[in-house]
Design a protein around this nucleic acid. Structure first.
Length: 553
RNA sequence: GGGCGAUUAGCUCAGUUGGAUAGAGCGUUGGCCUCCGGAGCCAAAGGUCGCGGGUUCGAAUCCCGCAUCGCCCUCCA
């Protein structure tokens, strides 16, 4: 409906330009909004106030001129001029319900669009190194990345979900070392773990498995020789665990990309050649620097250390170069918010490769504050005491966990209370929405018991849906495709949970006030179709969140 | 010291990118099952949008200053 109004408005302004009643100006960006106030109509625009400046006329006069060129086309009931120059559109009441036909035509595809027109997008997220199990912060990143991917896919993008394994750095060496020392410990040696080592119990378990497999044999060779064995073994096992956790959480990646692969293909070397040929690197103090200040970074960054080793940053640019070489039009990285200072240099990196700044989008995910009954749960990675994602899923379930992770803008801190998340009460929003779906299924079942199937749109008299609640519901359903497009454009998945909460509230309210299945056959059919349509939208939206839409609870 | 982000109801947070009388959930108070599932509904109370300036027809939103909090400032990853 919004698009139809936009079209009418655009045509009216164009007509005014043509007959000279408005001076032709630069094509203005026409915006239409949903007014809060009911007597401000179904849609409103401030276009007259924006045009007023260039037209050198009063906003109200401009508005009147536009309104005179407006053809209602059987869509609009009336058009008002209001306030300082708003144009308020009132859509014909009986037109709204006809929008439900869209749900009938598209079925489960309702809400999908071709906004992205097949654009190839890569979403990279989680990307935790296999040095330990995923914790709750990774879980939030996983939820955001996965849901964003689903949203982009639903809006016509060709999406690839990727997990980057940074397996060539110090952290992996430390992992091997940690297991190695625990192994020695199990053999009776007294050892003190060096700095940077991991201390969780899982390290000891890994050491014990190594002991079972190799006995004491690995003790007699030099550490340099055997530590890689420990590293490979531990990383493999931990990575399997991570994949399993993600699977249980409902997240499946299309691609796991290892940093070591990059080095095999001399990716970093190739990158440096590219940068050198474009004169974006220089030597100073024995190191090689990337001129990131050329693209707005606050200082240049080292890519090759004095020691001859490439920095992590060098590897990361090479990785992003590789991404674009694989043909992605757009790359989205999901990072922990503590990496925000890293954005300018990464952006500089891809721009030095000749990409536009817009080809890389970075979504920051803030920390999760884990609580139990309002009391913070102590977490310290150093001490090896942290709540893993797996523990959270086991306790509250994947649905509640995912939904809770998406209830806030990813950019802001999130309080996650374990007790509330598993409570099956009104304190827990996920049940509120799921219950709405179960309720609809139950209504349809009751109807079926009385001989009513779900009707097609063509079989109902939509004009019977005249209650205010029905009007609100139809508007809400109509808004759904726009909502999903908005999520895709802004990369903000949390809008879905807010929308769902609103839609579920309307449904519950409607249910309490009006009977769907009644003695009036025609009315029953019309309401059944409305309720069925809400069910389609709930299923679609919950599907995008990766949360179940249960038939009964 | 520099940079980034935050500051909105008792609590946790939205606010459609500058619109009209600022919203939701929880919590509080009071109501609603003869009836498609009460995991629900209805109603009420609750606000100097951190503070002070500025920009304009119009500011929670944009600009400047200040305060408080968090994060980042390595040739670490």
């Amino acid at each position: 409906m919004k698009k139809k109004i936009l079209e009418l408005l655009g045509r009216a302004i164009e007509a005014a330009f043509i007959d000279g009643s408005l001076c032709r100006a630069e094509a203005p960006i026409i915006e239409i909004e949903l007014p809060r106030e009911e007597n401000h109509g179904d849609y409103a625009t401030n276009i007259a106030m924006i045009l007023a400046k260039t037209q050198k006329k009063s906003p109200r006069l401009v508005a009147e001129t536009i309104m005179n060129h407006l053809h209602c086309n059987g869509i609009l009931e009336k058009v008002d001029l209001a306030g300082p120059g708003f144009i308020n559109f009132f859509v014909k009441k009986d037109l709204w319900v006809t929008l439900l036909e869209e749900v009938d035509l598209k079925g489960d595809a309702y809400g999908r669009s071709d906004l992205g027109s097949g654009q190839r997008v890569q979403v990279e997220f989680v990307s935790a190194n296999p040095t330990g199990p995923l914790h709750i912060g990774h879980g939030r990143g996983a939820a955001v990345g996965d849901v964003l991917s689903r949203i982009l896919e639903a809006t016509g993008h060709a999406v690839v979900k990727e997990y980057y394994i940074n397996d060539a750095g110090n952290q992996m060496a430390n992992l091997g070392k940690s297991v190695y020392f625990r192994y020695l410990e199990l053999l009776g040696q007294s050892v003190s773990l060096p700095d940077g080592c991991y201390r969780g119990d899982y390290i000891i378990e890994l050491a014990r498995t190594m002991l079972d497999r190799h006995g004491a044999a690995l003790q007699s060779t030099t550490p340099e020789e055997v530590i890689p064995l420990f590293t490979d073994y531990a990383a493999g096992i931990i990575m399997e665990g991570i994949k399993e956790d993600l699977r249980i959480f409902g997240v499946e990646f299309d691609c796991y990309f290892k940093e070591s692969e990059l080095h095999k293909d001399r990716g970093v070397f190739n990158l440096l050649e590219t940068l050198r040929s474009r004169a974006f690197v220089y030597e100073q103090e024995g190191a090689l620097w990337f001129k990131s200040t050329a693209f707005g970074d606050e200082k240049d960054r080292v890519v090759i250390r004095e020691t001859g080793e490439p920095t992590y940053f060098a590897g990361d640019i090479a990785y992003h170069k590789n991404k674009y070489e694989r043909g992605f039009d757009k790359v989205i990285d999901i990072w922990g918010a503590d990496h925000h200072g890293y954005i300018p240099r990464m952006s500089a990196g891809i721009q030095a490769l000749g990409r536009s700044r817009d080809d890389l989008k970075i979504v920051l995910v803030q920390l999760v504050n884990l609580l139990r009954n309002g009391v913070p749960v102590a977490m310290s990675t150093r001490a090896g005491e942290f709540v893993t994602l797996r523990e959270v899923i086991d306790e509250v379930g994947a649905d509640a966990a995912r939904y809770n992770f998406l209830m806030r803008r990813s950019n802001s801190h999130l309080d996650f209370d374990l007790e509330i998340a598993k409570k099956q009460s009104d304190e827990n929003p996920v049940y509120y929405v799921q219950y709405a779906h179960a309720r609809i299924v139950n209504i349809l079942k009751t109807a079926a018991d009385r001989g009513y199937g779900v009707p097609r749109y063509g079989e109902i008299n939509a004009g019977l849906l005249t209650e205010p609640e029905e009007h609100e519901l139809v508007k809400m359903i109509d808004r759904y495709p726009e909502l999903i497009e908005g999520c895709a454009l802004s990369l903000e998945p949390h809008r879905i949970t807010f929308y769902l909460n609103g839609l579920a509230a309307l449904l519950h309210s409607y249910y309490n006030k009006h009977r769907v299945v009644s003695d009036d056959g025609e009315l029953t059919k019309a309401r059944l179709f409305l309720v069925y349509s809400i069910g389609v939208v709930l299923r679609s939206a919950l599907g995008l969140l990766g949360v179940a839409a249960p038939d009964r609870m």
